[in-house]
């Protein structure tokens, strides 16, 4: 699951930062003579170059890996999805039509708002966010998503929209594809 991967990457990154700090802090109270200071300055410069190289590799490969197939569908071209769902948010309810879709086939959600900004978030039956997009007045955001498994998917608003923000929920029923 992507959320778990993000969490472990974050913990690893923050952990590495913490280890670096703990090491330096453990050394900070010690004194060094001129020769040792000069040597550690040289080592520090070498390490900095390695750090720069490592960050550059992460930057280039990470950017390519996450952007070469752009994760958001084209908003101008037709998405040619066989299932299309219109979603309209308004304080404080969702109009979702149709509210039943099939698993295994891409669904195009056309998301807009009648009043203020809302956040259209689909929660999978396990309680994790499957996908989300903003619902903005005056614009239609097109989202393409394929439900992997049948079930009841909860819709929540993830952009604060006033007093009824938290209870602004709905459901999408995902049924097994015909023939399954």
């Amino acid at each position: 699951m992507i959320q778990d991967a993000i969490w472990y990457i974050a913990l690893t990154g923050m952990g590495l930062v913490a280890v670096g700090f703990i090491y330096v802090i453990s050394q900070a109270g010690k004194s060094a003579d001129a020769a040792a200071t000069s040597k550690s300055a040289h080592t520090s410069n070498v390490l900095r170059r390695w750090l720069f190289g490592a960050l550059l590799v992460i930057f280039v490969t990470g950017s390519y890996a996450t952007l070469h197939r752009f994760p958001i569908p084209s908003q101008d071209a037709s998405l040619d999805a066989k299932q299309v769902v219109d979603v309209v948010g308004q304080q404080w309810s969702w109009a979702i039509n149709p509210a039943t879709v099939q698993a295994g086939t891409p669904v195009e959600f056309r998301i807009s708002s009648r009043d203020v900004n809302h956040g259209f978030a689909i929660y999978a039956p396990d309680g994790r966010i499957a996908i989300e997009a903003q619902a903005m007045p005056g614009f239609t955001n097109k989202l393409l998503y394929t439900f992997a498994a049948p079930g009841t998917y909860k819709v929540m608003c993830l952009e604060y929209c006033g007093l009824g923000h938290a209870p602004m929920t709905s459901q999408i029923q995902v049924v097994a594809a015909r023939g399954d």
Binding site: A10, G13, F21, T66, I72, E132, L158
Partner: peptide, 21 residues
């Protein structure tokens, strides 16, 4: 420094699809 790590992860479009707000 440590706070930047989750910030960068959230600033990634692919991650933001499930972490935004």
């Amino acid at each position: 420094a440590a706070g930047i790590v989750p910030a960068i992860l959230d600033g990634t479009i692919r991650n933001n699809l499930v972490m935004h707000n």
